[in-house]
Write a protein that binds this DNA or RNA. Structure first.
Length: 335
DNA sequence: CCTTTACCTACATC
DNA sequence: AGATGTAGGTAAA
């Protein structure tokens, strides 16, 4: 099954959104084209944003045929058991809604870019060159465990680790001619199994192996009947509650908790302060923090509060544009 | 409250 | 070549 979703490249730049470090399992088909291969919950997709729509400035021509993203659903996701097997087959509208939800298309990004550019010349210069960066609404389970892997780590290695989590403990979804067998993200219950830590250590997860296993067991202890539900339910709690609950998990500090709040729990003003954001804050916004030798709990909170008061309720989205501009692979583009 | 240190590994750099 | 530093941090002292 395939179809289109109508969205202008300024509202959603697919490539920038998928490679800016918020997710780790989207892959490009080849370097030439602009076809992306990835998984949204249990659905395997190919997504293509028309190259012309990125190169040509259509102005206010919102009806251009180029202003769309082509999607192709590669698996029928009917290999389930029990209730799920009886679920009605997905229609084109269902897929449109799924993608709309994943890309949070209800958020008027261009309006926000305009607003942020007006109040902040630093954002203005970077935002012009990095349009269409959206925060995805990810699966909280995958989001959480991916970012437990992210500590003191680099993006290529994090991607490898997430892939190996899926192929070791996930369920088979699809056989791809290029990427081979594709698995979904493991359930909490599988990550609780005996031997997970040593298995992950043998897969070169290092000290994160223990965090993953322990975090899964802690989540399981919160609600053994439906461990995933506990995490999803944080979407209904306020930011402070969700953040503190996440921080009760081993391997989850303030930064990882903010990543999960922002990227899968609908907390649009959560600000993950990592080394990049720390540097940005010192250089461009809060120079008095330069007196600190390292980031403290207090300065962490000060930076988050500053971004929230400066950019407003979608501060986390603004922050991700500035963060992306600071990533090494985008620096060249901005010089 | 702030600072330091150990923790795993792959890869870049000197 | 082998040491050193770094990559989206966390927890413990």
């Amino acid at each position: 099954m395939e179809g289109f979703i109508r969205v202008s490249p300024k509202e959603l730049n697919l490539s920038l959104t998928l490679v800016c470090g918020q997710c780790f399992r989207w892959k490009r088909r080849s370097k030439k084209d602009n076809v992306w291969f990835g998984i949204i919950f249990n659905h395997v997709f190919e997504l293509t944003q028309n190259i012309n729509s990125l190169k040509v400035n259509h102005g206010d021509d919102g009806d251009s045929v180029d202003s769309s993203i082509h999607w192709k659903l590669l698996n029928s996701s009917n290999n389930k058991t029990g209730k799920a097997a009886k679920r009605k087959k997905l229609s084109q509208d269902d897929i449109s809604n799924l993608l709309s939800d994943y890309f949070q298309l209800q958020v008027p990004l261009v309006d926000y870019y305009d607003k942020w550019s007006k109040i902040d010349s630093n954002f203005n210069s970077k935002g012009c060159q990095l349009p269409g960066i959206r925060i995805l609404r990810q699966d909280p389970i995958e989001n959480l465990f991916s970012f437990i892997c992210s500590s003191n780590n680099n993006i290529p290695r994090i991607s490898m680790m997430v892939d190996s989590l899926c192929s070791t403990y996930g369920q088979q979804l699809f056989d791809d001619h290029e990427f081979g067998t594709i698995y979904n993200f493991p359930s909490i219950s599988r990550l609780c199994e005996d031997g997970v830590e040593s298995k992950l250590r043998s897969l070169s997860f290092g000290y994160r192996a223990k965090f993953i296993h322990q975090a899964a067991k802690t989540i399981m202890s919160n609600d053994a009947k439906n461990p995933e539900k506990w995490l999803f339910n944080l979407r209904n709690e306020c930011y402070e509650k969700a953040h503190s609950q996440l921080m009760s998990l081993p391997g989850v500090g303030a930064k990882v908790a903010d990543c999960v709040c922002l990227m899968s729990l609908d907390k649009h003003d959560a600000i993950p302060v990592d080394t990049h954001v720390w540097k940005i804050a010192l250089n461009d916004y809060l120079p008095h923090l330069k007196k600190n030798k390292t980031m403290t709990d207090k300065s962490y909170k000060e930076i988050g509060n500053f971004f929230r008061s400066h950019f407003g309720p979608y501060a986390g989205w603004a922050h991700s544009v500035l963060f992306t501009a600071d990533l090494a692979k985008f620096k060249k583009l901005l010089e």
